[in-house]
Design a protein around this nucleic acid. Structure first.
Length: 273
DNA sequence: CACGAGACCTGTTCGC
DNA sequence: TGCGAACAGGTCTCGT
């Protein structure tokens, strides 16, 4: 589930609460359990448990696809990777089947890191800067202008889809929103980045922002068993819609493989120059 | 630098 | 029904 809109939704729900759960702001960590040791990337899991205890949650935000917990002493960063989710669950209850790490909180809540495929990771750091140093700009950063975006594209010879998935080029895009944005912008995923003109770059940046915004507005996308919450999956244009009509021209959507990722496109709208 | 393949993991779905 | 293959929202590392 976790691309920018899903991570943003999780951060917002934890920060602000919703009809089901309260905000975690001001809650204190009274203990931690690690059920899959490799979940903790830094420090080691034993040190993590010791260090995190007693810290108060003072902020929850997002950078790229990382959840950023500002604690009283450190920052806790969580990357959900392919199948992770964070669930605020009443203390002592079982809200998920694959919990790899749990923070016990006061006020009778616990924060469960559910993660069936065990790819997700957690860091506890004094300063998150090193983790973030190689990340590209946030898509909504106002200093990311159409002109600057075009200039960045012009310097790259990679295919546009793998480039958009590269978190060092632009942060937060994943397989869903990349396919959606490229279809909206009518750009073939194999197009070389330096072959796009200014007009296409403008449209691509606008499309990226539009699909991400739509995703956020719908609380993200919920595909299959991994995640419940959003309903953006009902508004996909091409992602996992192989054989269904392109929303613009009606041509059946095709599936190809690009960089080992399933890729969905309209062969009529998105052609190679 | 660009690219492809393989790793890391478990669960679901599809085809025979 | 059963069983293996294919596939899944991500990222890292290695070889060419």
């Amino acid at each position: 589930m976790p691309e920018l809109p899903e991570v943003e939704t999780i951060a917002r729900n934890l920060r602000e609460g919703n009809s089901q759960v309260p905000s975690v702001m001001g809650m204190r960590v009274t203990g931690a359990e690690v059920f899959w040791t490799r979940t903790i990337a830094q420090p080691d899991s034993k040190a993590f448990v010791t260090l995190v205890r007693g810290q108060e949650i003072r902020g929850v935000s997002r950078r790229a696809k990382y959840l950023v917990f500002e604690l009283s002493e450190d920052y806790m960063l969580v990357h959900l990777r392919m199948s992770g989710d964070l669930i605020l669950c009443p203390a002592g209850e079982s809200c998920a089947n694959h919990v790899r790490m749990r923070l016990q909180l006061d006020r009778d809540w616990q924060l469960d890191f559910n993660n069936p495929r065990k790819f997700g990771r957690v860091w506890l750091l004094e300063d998150p800067a090193d983790l973030f140093s190689s990340l590209g700009p946030e898509p909504f950063d106002p200093t990311l202008t159409p002109e600057g975006f075009f200039a960045s594209l012009s310097r790259r010879k990679r295919q546009i889809k793998p480039l958009l998935l590269d978190q060092g080029f632009i942060a937060g895009m994943g397989n869903i929103y990349t396919d959606e944005a490229l279809n909206l912008a009518k750009i073939h995923p194999l197009t070389r980045a330096d072959e796009l003109d200014q007009e296409q770059a403008d449209l691509l940046l606008e499309s990226i922002r539009r699909v991400l915004n739509d995703g956020i507005r719908r609380n993200g996308a919920s595909i299959d068993w991994v995640y419940q919450g959003g309903d953006f999956q009902n508004y996909f244009r091409v992602y996992q819609r192989t054989g269904e009509p392109c929303p613009d021209c009606g041509t059946p959507v095709e599936r190809i493989v690009v960089g080992q990722r399933g890729t969905h496109l309209c062969p009529q709208c998105q052609t190679l120059g």
